[in-house]
Amino acid sequence: MIARLLPLAAFLGLVVLLFAGIRLSEERPPDRLPSVLIGKPAPSFTLPGLREGEAEVSSSAFLGRPWLLNVWASWCAGCRVEHPLVERLGQRRDIALVGLNWKDERADALRWLAQFGDPYHAIAADPDNRVALHYGVYGAPETFVIDAAGVIRHKFVGPLTEQDLQRTLLPLLAQLLAEAGS
């Protein structure tokens, strides 16, 4: 009897295993890699500013309050998708929204900003992937959440969604602001 049920049990076990795999890949898509830099100091950088007359953009300027580093490019379709949400973040004055223009042509980037709107408080130009490489960037858009002490606390891979904002980003920013204030 038991010998007869064994194949069925094995089959059911396999079904459970495969379904768990599907569920897991929905929650944590395999192409979204976790950042190893979370909890580590954000790599410091000084890059030329992207905009006309924009001075050098240095990561040390943002110490003392939480900031977001949004990796974007004019060639990046996902950046257009998340742009309305990024604009909303750019309206905040309690955090800094820093754009990292990644592997892009300056003229294209400026045209993109003119067309869709420029939400950033500062934009660093990294056409040769010199700085983004240290952040482990492997695609655009990516968004790093960095606390007032300059530690990377979270990373979003791919376009930000309303759900990301409501569930993760906004509560985290509130927490970081509280940490910075105390």
Binding site: L33, S35, V36, L37, L133, H134, G136, Y138
Partner: peptide
């Protein structure tokens, strides 16, 4: 490279 991109 692993410090930046992970064991992956």
């Amino acid at each position: 490279l692993t410090e930046r991109y992970g064991d992956f």
